[in-house]
Amino acid sequence: MNHFVFPKWSNFAAPALVIIALIVPGYALSVVYYGGSPRTTDVGYEPAQPVEYSHALHVGKLGIDCRYCHTTVESSAQASIPPTQTCMNCHKQIRAESRKLLPMKQSHATGMPIEWIRVHDLPDYVYFNHSAHVTRGVSCVSCHGRVDKMQVVYQKETLSMAWCLDCHRRPEKHLREQEFVTQLDWTPGEDPLTYGLRIRERNNINPSTDCSTCHR
């Protein structure tokens, strides 16, 4: 008859179950919350590009302005990947024989575009407009990070809707004088919030948070 008696450890079963019941949902929640967050799935995407172009060299060291290549950023929705001709402006002479530049030379000779891999990719139902942001004093650095320090461009911010709305609700964190938008290392030299608020009030910047602003 002895095996009909509960074994001694069954005294711990009830408290153990309570502990498990507390831990398991918390664990499941954190796996879903952290695992599904764009900071895990999207940030840090750093695709290998067809040409080993280094922004760190061209922007960081040589000081070429973003708009030298991304010419349409102030006038259109797209910042635009430059045509191969823009590379050739300098590389017709400089490092013209470099192996790294072979895909570029081929593209220039054949007229076939270099197929760069898109790093910052919003969902197709989001209509982001570069010119609307850049001409109002939102710097490139706010969304793209310190590209002037990147050998290979990677995604720095989440580009999630919560992240967009955070700035649309309080844009003063990211506003500066329009002339400094492409200076990625620029700082206001005073409290950034007071500075941003001043710019916001002067230029009357009140971004909309209506659905149709970005989804149309």
Partner: peptide
């Protein structure tokens, strides 16, 4: 998850 949050990768994003 912790690794994915600190390491940069050229693998396609998880969607």
């Amino acid at each position: 998850i912790a690794r994915a949050r600190v390491v940069r990768s050229d693998r396609t994003r998880i969607h």
